[in-house]
């Protein structure tokens, strides 16, 4: 059945409608998870709050397992999904710069907008800086174009790269995520004396 647009089940014009709906839900979940506060976000770097890591690893793990089951059920064709092309070195450098901005500013681009939405001053300043950064990057693009496009590996997945099946990668990732969940819980308990457990109702 899926993916809907590449298979021509719905036309590409729906892109924007779907993007709008997904964006609203994404923003809602970010805000509901407490990501509009830079304290929650930067906590991961200081060891007192790992909610960012937990939320995103949960999303990744659920998506990985879900996609493989969906593929098996024939609800989605894994081979038709869009895969972002990999440029290894520029991506590592870009991720390091992004992480630096993360720890200095206390937001990532998406969460800064949720911060703006609820009127956080630091988020507004961060967003202004974000647009300044986009402007500087665009103006400086001719200088860094060579590096930006270097080390191209094409649309490659981890399982294709190391030659292991998707199931093994997913299982390994789930174990890694669970270890991270439990490990960060222990770190949090040590750093933060007054910790409250989430109560399932």
């Amino acid at each position: 059945m899926g993916p809907l647009i590449p298979q021509g089940i719905i036309t590409g014009e729906w892109d924007f409608v779907i993007a709008l709906l997904l964006g609203i839900f994404f923003g809602f979940i970010l805000e509901a998870s407490g990501f509009s506060s830079s304290r929650n976000i930067t906590g991961v770097f200081y060891g007192y709050n790992f909610v960012v890591l937990r939320v995103f690893l949960t999303a990744v793990v659920v998506t990985m397992i879900g996609l493989l089951y969906f593929n098996y059920m024939g609800w989605i064709n894994l081979d038709m999904l869009y895969i972002l092309p990999t440029y290894l070195t520029p991506m590592i450098v870009g991720a390091a710069i992004m992480g630096l901005g993360f720890v200095i500013g206390g937001f990532c681009p998406g969460t800064s907008y949720t911060g703006v939405a609820i009127g956080k001053l630091d988020a507004i300043v961060f967003t202004a800086g974000l647009f300044l950064g986009i402007f500087v990057f665009s103006e400086a693009y001719p200088l860094i174009e060579g590096f930006y496009n270097s080390d191209a590996m094409g649309r490659i997945t981890i399982s294709e790269f190391i030659g292991v099946s998707n199931e093994v990668i997913t299982f390994g990732f789930v174990i890694l995520a669970l270890a991270a969940f439990w490990g960060t819980w222990l770190i949090e308990k040590r750093v933060r004396k007054t910790i409250t457990e989430y109560k399932f109702d």
Binding site: V61, I65, Y69, Y72, E167, F171, V174, L178
Partner: peptide, 12 residues
């Protein structure tokens, strides 16, 4: 989570 991830190995 472990059961779901492990179940992937059983899929043909």
């Amino acid at each position: 989570l472990i059961v779901l991830a492990g179940g992937l190995f059983l899929l043909p």
